[in-house]
């Protein structure tokens, strides 16, 4: 922002006071209507029938079970996804092997696929009409319409989340530090924990936070594979839908308020992590050739 304080320079394009105020005004109004209002209305509707209805919704066994199921899903899916993200980033950025770019594209696929398509795809693997369905039936293993299905679907939709934060950063950091460490005799794990991890911790945490938010909020994919059994396979987002269609709007919004609070905390964490430098190193696409994050200045 070196030009901001200099009075001699002509104003930049779009800096005329009238235009500036007009544009800020329009953006603030539309932003408030489109982004802020939906957040506020959740709180208003949640308490529309008073504190007592709000508290009783949250104390309801079905709601509590939905919260429990959502937390359990996140506690299982997010760590597994994190390990995968680290492994993928290590393999892709520390080694050269044929098909690296293709692997990057495949990892990003879930990001562009409708959650409904993901859910349907899982039916054709683990459902009765799917690949493993008959086999699972014989051994009486329940994957669909049970917790494993919910976790698998959540892992599908969030598969790229950690990897896509780590890969550009680790690509930019190069391999020199790790190569020095191993040539000095450090083991692979030691190298990872003492050399790599300290350099990627904020980006890793950033990916984990975003991954967690998506797992807790996933609706489409989970609604296909969960079977919506009240008090059994309803996660919090599905529980919201159930209450809403049951004409218990206040209850639906009360449950939604929990997820809204998590969303706000996710954003606060995101901003805090960005101040630590996370989320900054970005390549426009994972599948395009890497460019150094800091362009060499002539």
């Amino acid at each position: 922002m070196s030009n901001a304080s200099s009075a001699r320079k002509p104003p930049r394009v779009g800096d005329q006071p009238l235009f500036r105020r007009l544009l800020i005004g329009i953006v603030l109004v539309v932003g408030a209507l489109l982004i802020l209002a939906p957040l506020i209305v959740i709180g208003v509707e949640a308490f529309s029938e008073g504190w007592r209805v709000y508290a009783s919704t949250l104390a309801d066994p079905d709601t509590r079970h939905a919260i429990f199921l959502t937390v359990v899903t996140a506690l299982i899916a997010v760590p597994i996804n994190t390990v995968f993200g680290i492994a993928a980033a290590w393999a892709i950025t520390k080694f050269d092997f044929p098909g690296r770019r293709f692997l990057l594209v495949v990892i990003e696929i879930p990001f562009s696929i409708s959650p409904i398509v993901a859910g349907v795809a899982y039916l054709f693997v683990y459902g009765l009409q799917g690949f493993f369905g008959p086999l699972l039936e014989v051994y009486d293993i329940k994957i669909l319409f049970a917790l494993p299905g919910i976790i698998l679907a959540s892992m599908f939709v969030t598969a790229p989340f950690v990897a896509r934060e780590l890969i550009p950063l680790m690509q930019a950091q190069g391999r020199d530090l790790e190569e020095s460490a191993t040539s000095l005799g450090a083991s692979g794990w030691r190298t990872f924990f003492s050399v790599t991890l300290p350099n990627i911790k904020w980006a890793l945490l950033y990916g984990v936070v975003l991954c967690n938010a998506r797992v807790m909020g996933e609706f489409g994919a989970v609604s296909v594979v969960s079977g919506n059994i009240r008090g059994q396979t309803n996660t919090l987002p599905l529980h919201i839908e159930l209450l809403y269609h049951d004409y218990q709007a206040a209850g639906a919004f009360a449950s939604a308020s929990i997820l809204a609070v998590i969303a706000v905390f996710t954003i606060i964490a995101k901003v805090a992590l960005e101040r630590q430098g996370a989320g900054r190193v970005r390549r426009p696409a994972l599948s395009t050739p890497a460019v150094p994050a800091v362009e060499p200045k002539p």
Partner: peptide, 30 residues
């Protein structure tokens, strides 16, 4: 390349991507 962990990290990655992403989509296409 002197760095260790290629087979482990690539193995985990391919297994996960295969099981979680490729298999379901292949099942749908089939």
């Amino acid at each position: 390349n002197v760095l260790p962990g290629l087979s482990l990290s690539l193995g985990v990655t391919l297994f996960y991507v295969g099981l979680i992403v490729v298999l379901p989509l292949a099942a749908l296409i089939i």
